[in-house]
Amino acid sequence: MNQLRAVLAALLVIGLLITAGCGTGQENSQSEQQNNQITANGLADTKSKSSASGQQLKKVKLIIYFPNENGEKLLAADRTVNLAGTDKYSAAVNELLQGPKKGEGTNVIPKNTQLLNTGIDNAGIVTVNFNNAFVKNFTGGSTGELMLIGSIVDTLTNFQEVKAVRFYVEGKPLDALSGHMDLTAPVTRIKNIL
C-alpha cells in the first residue's frame, strides 16, 4: 500500500508538471528596445592579443546602428571587430554592410553595396567611398535615405575624432542619393533619429 501511495504521489507530481506546462500559446511580443545612448566608439576595450599563429589581433568594440522596422529611428548594436589588416572606419562600415542580426532592426543597405575605401582628414571629415551599387540599387524615399545615410553617419561619428562624413561613389563625390538629402557637404551626426 505504501508502494501504491508513493506511485500515486509521483503520478500526481507528473500531472501537475504537465498541467503547468500547457500554456495558452500567448507569447508576449517583444517590444522594440529604444536606444538613445551615445557612446564613443573604439575607446573602450582596445586590447592587443597574440593569436596562436603569432599574428597580432587588435580587437575593438564598436556601436553601430540599424533602422527599426518602421524606419523611424536607429537601434544600437554591439560588435567586436578585429582591426588586423583594416582600419576602424572601414571595419565599422563593413559591419553595417553585413546587416543586422535577428532583433537588431531591419536592413537598409542597397544590394551588392561594397565599401571601396575610407579616409579621414585633419578636420575630422571621414570619407566613405562605395561602389556603384550604393546608388544604383537604392530604392528611394526620404525614410530610406535618412535611415541609410543616418546609420552610416551616426555609426562613424561615434568615433570621437569624427566630425562629419562625406560620401563618394567610385571615387566621385556624391551630392544627392535619390532627391532628398543634401549630401553636397559633409553630413554631421543626425541626432533626431537616435
Binding site: 533602422p67 524606419g71 535611415m147
Partner: peptide
C-alpha cells in the same frame, strides 16, 4: 510633395519635414 519608401514593406504612415 513626395511619397515615401523604405526597404521594409510594412513601414507606413504620413510625415512632414
Amino acid at each position: 510633395i513626395h511619397a515615401n519608401s523604405f526597404t521594409n514593406p510594412t513601414a507606413n504612415g504620413t510625415e512632414t519635414f
